[in-house]
């Protein structure tokens, strides 16, 4: 038997991503032609910075969604990280590195707690992470008394406002994280397990996948990425505030969904998520550059989510139909041969 190299088994997916890229570019150039001021360096930078924190959360969300779960607590973890890192540096006087490390460990612990409660209670992840979302938001409010915390050192501010080779640090982080996590998700044995869990948890268990352990790690990773985003956001805004990142979880989920992941689990890629993030960023930016009445933004973004899922549903129905055509063809062929 001929041994082929493992096909980039998502050849098909590569093709479909091209579609997303094309439309994103069309939107960009379309608005540039109509309104101008889109393809300026300054605007592109703003465009990217606009979704970068949600984008970082979307990376972790991709993992969670592939396992068939969901993590809606990321937005409050994000704000919590902002507040904690700020309090540690400004109020407790810790040095920057220590403060960041403690913050990331704390957010990881929250994620681990999410994962632990999910595997322990065997309740839908949405309920658990919703509980975390509401509780943590309340805690964020309470420990800051509703005030923002600020007064960072310039070195810290560099993490949010500085540039490396002309690119903003959070964007660099997002890019590097996406590349590393993308490679790991595609080719690392630990991350490959996610597809098995999302495809069928029982089967994965029987194959020796330690489902509980993997889940806990994945929720930990998701929360830690939200924590990283939070730390950089504190630096970007120069202040930590409990209301920062409100509803970011929905944007992150939307990016993952538009990027082609199945919310039921079992499929999804980092590449797709990145494209989804870029697409949402471009659309949001289009609203600003076109100076449309921004009240419409909610309507359109809701519509977009609906249309996205609707179309993906129709396409999958069409694919099922195509499969039937194929089968019918085989059947006809068989009966022909048999007759003769």
């Amino acid at each position: 038997m001929k041994v082929l190299p493992r096909q980039l088994f998502q050849n098909v997916i590569v093709v479909q991503y091209v579609g997303l890229v094309v439309v994103t570019l069309l939107t960009l150039f379309g608005f540039q032609a109509t309104f101008g001021n889109v393809l300026t360096g300054a605007n592109l930078e703003v465009l990217a910075m606009n979704m970068v924190f949600e984008g970082i959360m979307a990376l972790g969300m991709t993992f969670v969604i592939i396992t068939g779960g969901i993590d809606i607590s990321v937005a409050s973890v994000f704000a919590f990280a902002e507040i904690l890192v700020a309090k540690l540096m400004v109020q407790a006087g810790l040095d920057m590195v220590t403060a960041i490390v403690i913050t990331l460990v704390a957010t990881a612990a929250i994620g681990a707690l999410n994962g632990l409660l999910i595997v322990l209670f065997r309740v839908h992840p949405m309920i658990i992470t919703m509980g975390t979302l509401l509780t943590l938001r309340g805690i964020n409010l309470a420990i800051t008394d509703g005030h923002s915390v600020s007064g960072f050192s310039d070195v810290f501010l560099f993490l949010g406002q500085g540039k490396i080779l002309g690119v903003n640090v959070p964007i660099v982080f997002f890019g590097i994280a996406a590349i590393i996590l993308g490679i790991l998700l595609g080719h690392h044995r630990f991350f490959r397990q996610l597809y098995f869990i999302g495809g069928g948890e029982r089967a994965a268990r029987l194959s020796g996948v330690d489902v509980n352990r993997v889940k806990i790690i994945i929720y930990t990773l998701s929360a830690t990425l939200a924590g990283c985003a939070g730390v950089m956001a504190a630096a970007k805004y120069g202040a930590a505030h409990w209301a920062h990142g409100n509803l970011a979880e929905l944007k992150a989920i939307a990016a993952v969904a538009i990027g082609g992941a199945n919310i039921n689990g079992g499929s999804g890629t980092i590449g797709g998520t990145v494209l989804g993030v870029i697409f949402l960023a471009v659309v949001h930016n289009a609203f600003v550059t076109s100076a449309v009445n921004t009240f419409w933004y909610d309507v359109v973004s809701g519509m977009m989510l609906l249309i996205a899922v609707l179309l993906s549903r129709f396409i999958s129905l069409r694919n099922a139909r195509a499969l039937l055509v194929l089968k019918q063809g085989k059947m006809d062929q068989l009966s022909e041969t048999y007759k003769s």
Binding site: L117, I127, I128, M130, G131, T132, L133, L134, T135, L136, R137, G138, I139, L141, A142
Partner: peptide, 10 residues
């Protein structure tokens, strides 16, 4: 006050 709903849920 706002944390109460989440805590109740958990």
């Amino acid at each position: 006050q706002q944390a109460s709903v989440g805590i109740v849920l958990l």
